[in-house]
Design a protein around this nucleic acid. Structure first.
Ligand SMILES: [Mn+2]
Ligand SMILES: [Mn+2]
Ligand SMILES: [Zn+2]
Ligand SMILES: [Zn+2]
Lengths: 166, 166
DNA sequence: GGTCCGAATGATACTGAGTATCATTTGTTC
DNA sequence: GAACAAATGATACTCAGTATCATTCGGACC
């Protein structure tokens, strides 16, 4: 969940044009409750008969990712997905069954990264930290239903838990 | 760097056949000093006139990844690469300029993951933690040469630093 | 050593994500 | 309302990864 205006003002402040297609994509992104794939955005654009080219959607996603308002993450399946976030540093917990994503703050990771830099001599610039597991809903489901736990249909929903410290 | 026998015994112990192509791929993997892409393996196989099909290389990489002897990581560029590792849980520091990879142990990450589980209610199964930055060599280079720091040609080399605790 | 059978292979063809190109359109600045 | 660079979208392309399936092969058992 992110406000459309956040996306638009970020465009303006970075010296990029607020074109019609970009506004449209921003609206689509803002409407996404959880994480989404590029293909899903393309489908959404087509469904609403916006005349946006596929290339433009990829370009716009890249742009917002550069601006830090959208983050690209790699699912355990190997595919890619995006989440719209306020551009503060934080990480994601992803349900490997339904895809529900929750934000978490740094929780001491910065210290770990610093320590890694000290030990390895690397000048650490960025890190990637993603957690995968079962969300409470899916965990409950897995407990009640037969032990044959099949992945659910994936009603991806986003939410936020925990203070995004720092 | 990994020993060929580690790969082969892992095959055997998991009930998979030690076929000729798999031995060959294992040898190729063991010869890789740092991280490598699937395409690079394919090229290496072709260069040495081993008659291994492309599909088999992908299949074998997947297999070794399942067995935990090879880890697939996502480069900051968006591409994928593999590193051969002893199958103990650890993480990677990757030089964003030359690709040199260094192993690091858990360094308190397990605690962070546990804390995330507590706060979010997720049952955390796995996590992904990768660090990117400049290795000492590239950092020195960047300091001596013009401030116009272009990424170098990428002579990927692997090494290990720090106790892989746990 | 020979038989047998499922596992594994590789040739081929396919999918799907992402990108290059380039003539046309559009946002912004003056 | 020009003017001009930035952005678009149609098209065609590349490249990673995968499905298919007839053929081969490893290894278990005798
Ligand atoms: Mn987020
Ligand atoms: Mn490693
Ligand atoms: Zn779930
Ligand atoms: Zn380096």
């Amino acid at each position: 969940m992110i406000a459309v205006v956040s996306l638009l003002t970020a465009l303006d402040r970075s010296g990029h044009r607020a074109t019609e297609p970009r506004r449209a994509v921003a609206t689509l992104i803002a409407a996404q409750p959880g994480h989404f794939t590029a293909a899903e955005l393309v489908a959404a654009a087509r469904a609403r008969r916006l005349g946006i080219g596929r290339a433009t959607i990829f370009r716009t996603l890249d742009l917002f990712a550069e601006l830090g308002l959208v983050e690209r993450l790699e699912l355990p399946t190997g595919g890619h997905a995006y989440v719209a976030c306020e551009p503060t540093h934080h990480h994601h917990v992803v349900c490997s069954s339904c895809g529900r994503t929750v934000d978490v703050g740094d929780l001491g990771l910065a210290d770990v990264a610093r320590e890694v830099g000290r030990r390895t001599g690397y000048r650490i610039d960025t890190h990637r930290f993603e957690l995968y597991g079962l969300c409470p809903v899916c965990a409950a489901e897995a407990r009640t239903t037969e032990p044959a736990a099949e992945p659910a249909a994936r009603p991806a929903v986003g939410s936020t838990v925990g203070p995004a410290r720092r």
